[in-house]
Computed example of a mutant assay.
Amino acid sequence: MLRSVTRRAARARLPIAGLALALAATLTGCGLLGGDDEGSGSPSGSGGLEKTKIKVGTIPVVDIAPLHYAIEQGYFKDEGLEVETVVQPNGQRAIQGIMSGDLDISFSTYAATFTAQSQRVADFKVVADGLAAKANHLMVVATPNSPVKKATDLPGKKIAITAKNTFTDLAPMAVMKVQGIDYQQIQWIPMPLPEMLGAMTKGDVDAAVVVEPWVTKAMKEAGAVPVLDAASGPTAELPMSGYMAVAGPGKFATTSPNTIAAFQRAMAKAQAQGTDRTKMEPMFVKYAKLDESTAKLVTISTYSTRLEPNRIQRVANLLEEFGAIQGTSTSPR
């Protein structure tokens, strides 16, 4: 169950397919009210920072451009906070990092976090929203030599995805479902995103589901063409990622509400700059490791400046719709 811990909604529990995921606070400066059910956080806005140096797990994707921009512009420093970024090889390792305490906060996809939460591996809290997919950010693409020319060609074909029950298969299935395309006949082939282009070129797969910057790279480097926009219709502006922490006795989301509030204020300021390509493109080059010409072509998606439970609820609904998580709605507490 998803609960917003602002003063107005601290007691409300929103249906999120039985998950115990909590919004740590709004991005309007409110702190973490009372931590989790077992912990004891400080009152909103009171006192100094519990930690002045934190470690934040990152992945080299375009989603985290505002985080690096905030560091470079001194937004965290203005809040009395020093942020050390620690690059993680994948979302699973990022989640493991906050569970172990090696990281205080970590970037992760909502799909990965909600799935982990449904397995009760930890009490995750969303610290800050990340990126919501605009059109052309999450795409099914195919190379010119592929038998897949349009979305109706996908059934019966081999399609590369990062993993089962992630946005790379769930979002396309949601779009195909409303279009009447039999997605159940697709053979999903898990592989890392950097390997998908080669697999398509060699004919090992007929198409691939990719996110930016791999959408742009596939089109630029292999002449790939769009087959289906997986961020359209029922998945338009779908929240993709955010920054997570773990709550519980002695855990960061419970013990450090003022530090979290400082992190949120700095992130909100940086995310508000997300539509300015002149500010984001240098971050793509330095931290997502894109060349400048590719960075200029990447689709800029929505960098959210506040946590909105109803929007993030869409992810849980998507996961539940296709059986990735199980659960039922709960009544207000």
Rank of each mutant, 00 (worst) to 15 (best):
M1I: 12
L2T: 02
V5E: 02
R8S: 01
A12D: 07
L14F: 14
I16A: 05
A17M: 12
T26E: 02
T26Q: 05
C30I: 11
L32F: 01
L33E: 01
D37I: 12
G39C: 09
S42P: 02
P43T: 00
P43S: 00
S44D: 04
G45M: 06
G45K: 08
G47W: 11
I54C: 03
K55R: 13
P60G: 01
P60N: 00
V61I: 12
V62I: 05
D63M: 03
D63V: 13
D63N: 09
I64Q: 01
A65R: 03
F76I: 01
F76C: 03
D78R: 15
E84P: 12
V86K: 01
V87D: 04
Q88I: 09
N90E: 00
A94C: 10
A94V: 14
G101M: 13
D102R: 15
D102N: 14
I105H: 01
S106F: 11
F107N: 00
F107D: 00
Y110G: 06
A111G: 06
T113A: 05
F114Y: 15
A116K: 11
Q117C: 11
S118R: 13
S118I: 07
V121G: 03
V121M: 07
F124K: 03
V126T: 08
A128S: 13
D129L: 12
A132L: 10
H137E: 10
T143D: 08
T143V: 15
N145C: 14
P147K: 09
V148N: 06
T152I: 15
T152H: 15
G156S: 06
G156P: 14
G156C: 09
I159G: 02
N165T: 02
L170H: 00
M173I: 08
V175P: 15
K177Q: 15
I186S: 03
W188A: 00
P190E: 00
L193S: 15
E195M: 14
A199T: 09
G203K: 12
G203H: 13
D204H: 12
V205M: 07
V205T: 06
A208V: 14
V210N: 01
V211L: 09
P213C: 04
W214Y: 14
M219A: 07
E221M: 12
E221W: 14
A222W: 14
G223M: 12
A224H: 09
V227S: 01
G233Q: 11
P234R: 04
M240I: 10
M244V: 11
V246E: 01
V246H: 05
K251Y: 11
F252S: 06
T255D: 13
S256P: 14
A262D: 03
A266Q: 04
K269E: 01
Q271T: 05
A272K: 06
R277N: 03
K286H: 07
A288L: 07
L290V: 04
L290M: 08
S293D: 12
S293V: 14
T294W: 11
A295F: 11
L297Y: 06
L297V: 00
V298N: 00
T299G: 05
Y303H: 11
Y303M: 07
T305A: 06
E308P: 13
E308N: 14
R311T: 10
Q313A: 14
Q313L: 14
Q313V: 13
R314G: 06
V315Q: 07
N317D: 11
E320Y: 08
F322W: 05
T328E: 06
S331H: 06
